[in-house]
Structure formats: C-alpha cells, structure tokens
Simulated assay, not measured.
Amino acid sequence: MELADETPDDWWAIEALYDLTFAPGRKALSSYRLRDDVPAVPAFCRVVRYDDGGIGGAIRCWPIRIEDHRALLLGPVAVHPTRQGEGLGSLMIRDVLERSAPAGWPRVLLVGDAPYYERFGFNRLNGVVMPPPTNPDRVLGHGAWAGIRGRVRKSLD
C-alpha cells in the first residue's frame, strides 16, 4: 500500500467510500456548506492505495477563513470497513498535520469527537463558530489558533 495524492480517476471510488462509511445524509451537514462550489486543496487530498489499485482510505481538506485567518477544514476522512483498525485513518491525519504548516496552512479545523482527535493534538475551539447546527463541542483545532475568534466561512484560496 501507499499514501498517494488523489487523482481525477479516484473521484468515483472516493465518493463510494464516503457513501459507504458515512450516513446517507452526510451532504446535509453544515460542513458541506463550506465545501459547496469550492475546490478542495489538492495537496491535502490523499488516498491509501493498494497494489491492486483499490482504495482503502481517503482524506480531503478544504480552504476556510475565520475573519482574515486562513485554515484547512480537514475532512471527510474515511477508511473502508474492511481496513479499519489498521491505522490508515491515523496515517492520513498525521500526513495532513505534518505537511500543513510548512505549506502555509498554520491552522487545521475539523468537526469531530474530541476524545478521538485529541491524540493528534486537536483541542476544542472556543469562539470559532461553524455554520449551524454544528455542536460547538465538536469544533476542534490544531495549530496556531491563539486569539482567533469568529465565524467559519468558505474560502476560494
């Protein structure tokens, strides 16, 4: 297996993986409003590809802004049910976190379960507001968030 950049040929397989791993209403979530009509950041759209060409996991990131501060919105991240427990999700998340700040993205935000994401260095963000109806306890950040407050909005850069 290898961790590789997503290619245009991967699109359908990744969408099928997301449909398989997430609830049918995944696109109704508020985080998807931040992704509508905004291209993902290609350097942070990765797949775990096996020798047979199959995809065992996928991660995508999107540009967002909080006031004048840019950040990456991490997710969705998914691992095929037959590959869960192999550390693929951790591999993909760590890859994004190791490469984001050096690439000019000092902040990463996600909506998720704090007990799971704390091991990667994510913490609850007070004062950073996702579009409703997001639970504020699930808004987590990694990186340079000191003093940053405001509404999360989509970005085109």
Rank of each mutant, 00 (worst) to 15 (best):
L3M: 12
L3C: 11
T7H: 10
D10I: 08
D10Q: 01
W12R: 14
W12H: 14
I14Q: 06
E15G: 01
L17G: 07
L17H: 02
D19W: 00
D19R: 14
D19T: 11
L20A: 14
F22P: 09
F22M: 12
A23E: 14
P24Y: 01
G25S: 12
G25T: 10
S30Y: 00
R33N: 11
L34K: 11
L34D: 09
L34T: 03
L34R: 02
R35W: 01
R35Y: 02
D37F: 09
D37P: 03
V38P: 11
V38F: 06
P39T: 06
V41N: 07
V41L: 07
V41E: 11
A43Y: 04
F44P: 14
F44D: 12
R46Q: 15
R46M: 07
R49M: 00
R49K: 07
R49S: 04
G53F: 01
G53V: 04
G54W: 02
I55Q: 08
G56H: 05
A58Q: 02
I59Y: 00
C61S: 13
W62V: 10
P63D: 07
I64E: 03
I64V: 15
H69D: 13
R70W: 00
A71F: 04
L72I: 04
L72V: 09
L73H: 07
L74Q: 07
L74S: 10
V77G: 01
A78N: 09
A78G: 09
H80N: 09
P81H: 05
P81S: 05
P81I: 00
T82C: 08
R83Y: 15
R83Q: 15
E86V: 01
E86R: 09
L88N: 06
G89Y: 04
S90T: 13
L91F: 00
L91D: 07
R94E: 15
D95Q: 05
D95R: 00
V96R: 01
E98H: 12
S100A: 15
A101D: 13
A101C: 02
P102D: 13
G104S: 06
G104N: 01
G104A: 02
W105Y: 02
W105T: 08
P106V: 06
V108R: 01
L110K: 06
V111S: 10
D113N: 12
A114R: 12
A114P: 12
P115I: 09
Y116I: 06
R119I: 10
F120H: 08
F120V: 10
G121R: 08
G121W: 03
L125N: 04
G127C: 08
G127D: 07
V129E: 10
M130L: 08
P132Q: 05
T134Y: 05
N135G: 01
N135H: 07
P136L: 00
D137Y: 11
R138H: 15
V139G: 04
L140Q: 02
L140T: 06
H142R: 03
H142C: 08
G143I: 09
A144E: 15
A144D: 15
A144T: 14
W145Q: 08
G147E: 02
R149S: 15
R149C: 13
V152A: 08
K154G: 12
K154V: 03
